[in-house]
Design a binder for these strands. Sequence first.
DNA 1: AAGTGGTCTAGACCACAAC
DNA 2: TTGTGGTCTAGACCACTTG
Lengths: 253, 253
Amino acid sequence: MELKPIIRMKKNLSDEVKENLCDYIRRMDVKKNPKLPSEAALAQILGVSRVTVRRALDDLEQSGLLLRIHGRGTFVNPEAVQIKLNMTEGGELMESIIRSGYEAKVELVRVEEYDADKKLASALQIDIGARVVEIEKVFYADNHPAIVCIDRFPKDILVRPLKEDEYKTTIFDLLRDTAGKTITRDKVEVLSMSRAQMKKYSPFADQMECDSVLVLNSLNYDQNNIPIIFDTEFYNTNYIRYTLMRPKNIHYV
Amino acid sequence: MELKPIIRMKKNLSDEVKENLCDYIRRMDVKKNPKLPSEAALAQILGVSRVTVRRALDDLEQSGLLLRIHGRGTFVNPEAVQIKLNMTEGGELMESIIRSGYEAKVELVRVEEYDADKKLASALQIDIGARVVEIEKVFYADNHPAIVCIDRFPKDILVRPLKEDEYKTTIFDLLRDTAGKTITRDKVEVLSMSRAQMKKYSPFADQMECDSVLVLNSLNYDQNNIPIIFDTEFYNTNYIRYTLMRPKNIHYV
DNA sequence: AAGTGGTCTAGACCACAAC
DNA sequence: TTGTGGTCTAGACCACTTG
């Protein structure tokens, strides 16, 4: 007996169902039988309504983990099992490196403070000339520089100066604990850059072991839709590669 | 009166609600009042249940177009209006260029046929040595090469030889009409490449007006979860830039 | 207190697949 | 015919924001 009735702990039921199913799937022998119990059966076993089961399955299908075939059933997607980094999930860079199969290490490159220029001020919706903190960190994969990350945020959202060792923690935790801001979503722009171009942004560009980098420009918004952090991440895609599962909508005609 | 009761035409009700709402939002004066009617009001006006309204709103929020604030209401997201290309949507490359604000043109670079090597055979789940068709096209933005696209698929899914002018149409339409295969989703790997590296894959690399390119390796699956097309797209991100809206899940603690 | 979004349920009916 | 996923509804209750 693998699946047990859901006991409400926190958050919502369909998330609990989702976690429960993920555990179940991990313990399944997918090659032998990739089929899940029917929705009605799951609802009964888990003790929740079918709608709730479907909400969980919707999410898992959206992320690519499950396939549903009308009239046949729900199956674990064998193509999705090997995915290490899902681009729509983001997550912490240290964990990204670990999930990619490397030993992870982070170093602080620099911390600076300056006045926002027009472009940054516009992005962060602050006044031109407002003080901004810029933190650059480098993340290593097996001691090779894999990701360079530059975070920029308005200085005045910090209620107290930061201590030396706090710079290394993630900026999100930092801002939640010191400023009470929670990042609820971000808007990412994807581009490619040569190492020469990267030099304009980072003194660390010379030490990247690749000619070109993947660049993610991410504007992070808090719960009130106010942009809080503008960060730029430079990836050596020989080490870190994002994957994206995209369902194609065939509804249109 | 802007919103009218939904009349079921095809597909599902929440998709119709979604389109209806999109039209409504486009005609809204967002700067004056970005707030939408309440879910209960929408349900009544549109003549559908609140659950159906919520399904539509869920999708629109997921894509970033809407913001919902518990206890306050649903609002058009001013940050999302300017997005031109959403990475999770994909879509046709000609349209991507037009939506990015350029004049679009496509040219066929080459059509080749060869035996699948181990790597390609593994990706397409075919035998090593099976015949594969490879088609390379270049898409121009205002007469500058912006995207190079290389499509590869097993020759035997074509029921008849292709005519000259058919190569220029999209491969998806081609395969749907000639082979009865519909692409339902794809799995995309994101990387960056220097122009020198791109030369290994494309004779057109020399003509790209940039030192580095964004590369999307996309494996396209049909309705039976069989991989049909493996295509590689090289982007000059000075012309074409994808954007991605990522909701962060704050549920976990 | 009133209004809004967030969650969940029970039940119905439809569409597709397989026997 | 049976079992499966796909869609939709009405109604209930909760949690958050605002006045």
